[in-house]
Simulated scan of single mutants.
Amino acid sequence: MGQVWLPAQFTSFTGLPDTLRYARWDGRADFPSDPGQVEFYVPPLVQDLRTISRPLGRMTRLRAMQALSSGHDGLGAELRRLPGRVTLCNARGTHAPSTAELALALILASLRGTAEFTRCQELREWRPAVFSSLYERTVLVVGYGALGSAVEDLLAPFGCAVVRVARTGRRSPRGPVHAVSRLPELVAEADVVVLTTELTAVTRHLVDAKLLAGFRDGALLVNVARGAVVDTDALWEEVRDGRLRAALDVTDPEPLPAGHPLWGAPGVVITPHVGALTPSLWPRLEALVRRQLVRFAADEELDNVVAY
């Protein structure tokens, strides 16, 4: 009977195949069973790769790993150190509704001056000011998968002109999806640029000094992807004098050090990588893991496979 490790966050998880044995681990305590017997590993939902990787060196019988994140930065390299072939799956799509919701909140908070008004409230000062609007703006979505599509869904009531970008150009039911090679010309026309792409060797520092210089004055950069998609030093040079605005749920480095200048930069809104973390996320994750375990127990092909 195969051994499965589940996250301790799954406190009430039912409907699992009874041909498998289950243990729960929170990433901090001692291992709940012998890692050498684990065949299917669902790590805790944490951002620290070291926590996820801690038992991997002893998981000599591991056959599949179901990440609870949509990204899988570094996990493939960790699994390739194991003696056998391990199927790595991500949680593509499960994070999209909550993260898209935060992306919209960040756009509105930045454009409408919420951060500035919050500071005025803390000072008990009444300072009326006119800020921008999202209505009928041009929004460039970079990374048109489940998350990018969900962001477009939420922009619909605002009458925005949504421009879609992905690794390669294609047609979608909503219109054209442009190749990433066209980014330099597309950012020049955008009022808001939303990053929803995965972090890969190709997208690392995709938004660099040269690309940022091509943004129109006053444009807003929103990052709900991964911090390293943006060159942080280059971003600082553009926001320090207020030429660009930024709303960041992810940063590089992360966590952002207390003394980092981005904390106090004008027109910058920062949230601590919480895009997906809403109560509605857990039922979606549990449904995904349940489907995967049913497939695993039946020796069927798993969904969301990203690497072996």
Score class of each variant (00 low, 15 high):
residue 59 M to R: 06
residue 112 R to N: 02
residue 78 E to A: 08
residue 106 L to I: 11
residue 2 G to L: 05
residue 18 D to W: 05
residue 290 R to A: 12
residue 185 E to C: 00
residue 131 F to Q: 04
residue 175 G to L: 07
residue 65 M to S: 08
residue 80 R to G: 04
residue 204 R to H: 11
residue 123 L to S: 14
residue 242 G to Q: 02
residue 300 E to G: 08
residue 307 A to G: 03
residue 123 L to M: 14
residue 47 Q to C: 02
residue 228 A to W: 14
residue 251 T to H: 05
residue 164 R to H: 06
residue 127 R to T: 15
residue 238 E to L: 08
residue 157 P to W: 07
residue 72 H to R: 04
residue 28 R to T: 14
residue 202 V to T: 14
residue 51 T to A: 11
residue 211 L to Y: 02
residue 102 L to F: 02
residue 308 Y to R: 13
residue 174 R to C: 00
residue 291 R to T: 13
residue 209 A to Q: 06
residue 62 L to T: 14
residue 69 S to W: 15
residue 144 Y to Q: 08
residue 256 L to W: 08
residue 124 R to G: 07
residue 193 V to A: 08
residue 262 L to M: 07
residue 148 G to P: 03
residue 226 R to N: 09
residue 4 V to W: 01
residue 73 D to S: 14
residue 277 L to M: 09
residue 153 D to I: 13
residue 223 N to T: 11
residue 195 L to D: 01
residue 6 L to C: 11
residue 163 V to P: 03
residue 6 L to A: 06
residue 75 L to D: 03
residue 158 F to D: 01
residue 19 T to E: 07
residue 241 D to L: 12
residue 144 Y to I: 05
residue 45 L to T: 03
residue 129 A to L: 14
residue 60 T to N: 05
residue 217 D to A: 14
residue 272 P to A: 06
residue 232 T to L: 03
residue 94 T to I: 09
residue 278 T to A: 11
residue 40 F to P: 05
residue 182 R to K: 02
residue 180 V to A: 15
residue 245 R to V: 01
residue 223 N to V: 10
residue 208 D to V: 12
residue 210 K to Q: 06
residue 176 P to Q: 10
residue 284 R to D: 08
residue 44 P to R: 07
residue 293 L to V: 05
residue 229 V to I: 09
residue 7 P to E: 04
residue 200 T to P: 10
residue 263 W to R: 14
residue 279 P to T: 13
residue 98 S to K: 00
residue 89 C to S: 12
residue 53 S to M: 05
residue 108 L to T: 02
residue 130 V to I: 15
residue 20 L to S: 12
residue 159 G to Q: 09
residue 149 S to N: 11
residue 41 Y to W: 10
residue 140 L to N: 06
residue 169 G to A: 15
residue 258 A to Y: 02
residue 182 R to E: 10
residue 88 L to V: 01
residue 30 D to F: 06
residue 109 A to I: 00
residue 244 L to C: 10
residue 82 L to V: 05
residue 297 A to W: 13
residue 145 G to Y: 10
residue 216 R to T: 13
residue 98 S to A: 15
residue 211 L to H: 01
residue 303 D to M: 12
residue 36 G to F: 11
